[in-house]
């Protein structure tokens, strides 16, 4: 493996580990811990302690990778940590598919392919550091290439982290919606649901609500009114409850109702 590339990997791993460790000591960490798949693994009572223990391990290893000297044991520890993480993800996916992983943020997002891909990338980076010199040597040797690899890998890790989508992906999509207004194209109409809501708030509806048997049967418009019909039953037999709901706010105020006997069914 090229020496400077291996040095860059130490920085990538240290950055991710320090970030992941810090997340586990935030004020929201206990809640994030209880929502993570770790709860299933260690139980409700021990979950916060276990979550923070993982955080401590991540912070320690991150600091060791940054600090001199670069020992091969640090690489082995990183490989072990990310192998363990892959195992945890497999366990979580099987046993608690709706839980989050609680890895790089407190946003609860179910574990999917991106979490696996991210861990695989980090495991590969840990393997690349085996036998490498301490990272400042890489920076001195190939500064531009090292920084370029750092930026690219950091971007890759962020892109593979659904917990961080709300920091970059969603704002980007919101901006796109603001520029393009994709949903502002439809005609302005009074939706049927609006008339149904107004109907359900009316006294006319309440006076017959106990008689109604069906959901909305039919609807149409007549001038300022929208007509809505429901099947109903009275002591006299089957009837149609027909309501007239004002179509717009500035029209007539009251909802009206009539119960009209159904026509006799045609003989078979």
């Amino acid at each position: 493996m090229i020496e400077w590339f291996a040095g860059a990997q130490q920085l990538v791993l240290a950055g991710v580990l320090v970030w992941a460790g810090t997340v586990k000591f935030r004020a929201t960490a206990p809640e994030a811990a209880r929502r993570s798949a770790l709860r299933k693994l260690v139980g409700e009572r021990r979950v916060v302690t276990a979550y923070r223990a993982v955080g401590t391990a991540e912070l320690t290893l991150g600091a060791l990778l940054l600090a001199p000297p670069m020992l091969v044991i640090e690489s082995y520890a990183a490989v072990a940590l990310f192998t363990g993480m892959l195992g945890y993800l497999v366990y979580a996916k099987r046993k608690a598919p709706e839980s989050g992983c609680g890895c790089l943020g407190d946003k609860q997002t179910p574990i999917r392919g991106r979490a696996f891909a991210r861990t695989a990338v980090l495991l590969a980076a840990a393997l690349a550091t085996l036998g490498a010199a301490w990272w400042p040597a890489a920076l001195a040797d190939r500064p531009l290439a090292t920084v370029a690899v750092l930026v690219a890998e950091a971007a890759l890790v962020v892109a593979l982290s659904p917990e961080l989508d709300h920091r970059w992906l969603l704002p980007l999509r919101r901006w796109r919606v603001r520029v393009r207004h994709p949903l502002a194209t439809g005609p302005t109409v009074v939706p049927l649901e609006s008339s149904v809501q107004r109907l359900q708030k009316s006294d006319a509806y309440r006076s017959v609500a106990g008689l109604l048997r069906s959901d909305l049967l039919d609807w149409w418009e007549e001038g300022e009114w929208r007509l809505l019909t429901y099947a109903a039953t009275t002591s006299d037999g089957q009837v149609t409850a027909v309501f007239a709901v004002p179509l717009r706010d500035h029209g007539p105020a009251d909802v009206r109702v009539a119960l009209v006997p159904d026509p006799e069914p045609a003989p078979a």
Partner: peptide
């Protein structure tokens, strides 16, 4: 049905007392 509820035609309509009792 439009005529029945808006009162523009004479239709056999179940009385308001029937509704109120429910």
């Amino acid at each position: 049905l439009t005529g029945a509820v808006l009162g523009t035609t004479a239709a056999t309509v179940v009385g308001a007392s029937t509704m109120g009792s429910f």
